[in-house]
Write a protein that binds this DNA or RNA. Structure first.
Lengths: 224, 224
DNA sequence: CAGTATCCATTTCGATACTG
DNA sequence: CAGTATCGAAATGGATACTG
């Protein structure tokens, strides 16, 4: 946290916030992650040592509190941390509008499914258990197939077959589904183009787009 | 500009924006600076090589355009760059509320006067020329005295005696005036406490607080 | 689960001087 | 005015393995 040597509040704030990964950790905390390994899933490319370091920096700066209950550790944003919401929001809106080029390295099936599985329209699911399977033919086999198991009171994301029968199977390019999630393309467009294939009983197939909510930034209007 | 390997728009935006100095350069551009050495005055601790590099990064990213007219070079924000305004705004508001500790290294008379001289309430000045002198007894002599010369159509900041007779002389601790500028303390408070001394004819002395506008963030409400 | 420890390649950037 | 050139010190952080 090198200083800029400026009294300007923008400079003082950025001394803290422009450190690599910091705002992404804050984003995860704002999204509701509260435990170390939960945060790690939101920033999978960050080493645990670095995450630990950033959390301590955030604590020193008074943005995060740390509570222990037995050996369970919980991180919570303070009011100062919660007030970063408008910043994360405006950064995300800006990024949505102006940084539209995604490299192949930006695509990540785990992260995509992690995001999607915690943004399902639960009320739209039928009673009982619903199993969705996602297959990405263009991804190395180890990360190519994912299951989301939805029951009344929980949603599980699995990278190994949970053993239940699959209700709806989605086969799609990783980029296509990522772009749908981001709101760059419409679900029915990639469906019609054949880039995304849905299998299963017709009523469930038709329900799928109502189950899947999009990123919080998907609705941001794009530049004309 | 290392990638985060995430498709999240916050991550994609921060790949660009979390590079050291970048948002301060943008802040200067948003404030209206358009030329290289003008920008340098707003980020005095940044080396010219690094400023040049950041400007090129911003150009590549499509946030800044560069025009040459003869050998006069002008940098202008594109629409994408202009739309960083809400980000700079929210970062500044947050910094104003939550990063209130200023180290001595954050104080800078040149930067303070540079900011103040371009935020004067020009309409409140008398006709003709008005000369303000600021003296900081706690600053090394080379940077301890500054003059602001206000005429109908321009405002000059000088670090050497411009030779005109001084209308209002201000003597103050650097920290006190900085905190007034930031809105952390009130002008009349530091005046009454004797931390700031004003000399000159009574009408001009009384007019001084109306001439000096405060930082754009001074009015941000502080946490209760 | 919640982190530490270690290690080094790579990057970054600050300082200073210089140029067309 | 608008930058380049150079250089070395510092730090950053990625990878990997390990621990209570």
């Amino acid at each position: 946290m090198r200083s800029y040597g400026q009294f300007c509040p923008v400079a003082k704030a950025m001394e803290l916030l422009d450190e690599r990964w910091t705002l992404l950790v804050v984003r995860e905390l704002l999204m509701g992650s509260r435990h170390f390994n939960e945060l790690r899933r939101g920033v999978p490319r960050m080493s645990p040592a670095l995450l630990s370091k950033r959390l301590r920096t955030l604590m020193r700066a008074g943005l995060v509190d740390r509570f222990t209950d037995g050996n369970r550790v919980t991180y919570v944003l303070t009011p100062a941390g919660e007030e970063l919401h408008p910043i994360v929001e405006s950064v995300g809106r800006w990024g949505t509008r102006w940084i539209t080029q995604l490299g192949d390295a930006d695509l990540d099936p785990h992260l995509l499914l992690w995001d999607m599985h915690r943004n399902l329209e639960l009320a739209a699911f039928p009673d009982g258990r619903t199993v969705l399977r996602f297959t990405f033919p263009d991804v190395p086999p180890a990360a190519a197939t994912w299951w989301i198991v939805v029951t009344r009171d929980e949603v599980d994301l699995c990278d190994t077959d949970p053993g239940h029968s699959v209700d709806v199977a989605v086969t799609t390019g990783l980029r296509a589904l990522t772009e749908v999630w981001r709101g760059d393309r419409r679900f029915d467009e990639v469906l019609r183009s054949g880039e995304l294939l849905v299998e299963g009983p017709a009523p469930l197939r038709r329900a799928l787009p109502r189950w899947l909510k999009l990123s919080a930034f998907a609705a941001v209007p794009r530049p004309v």
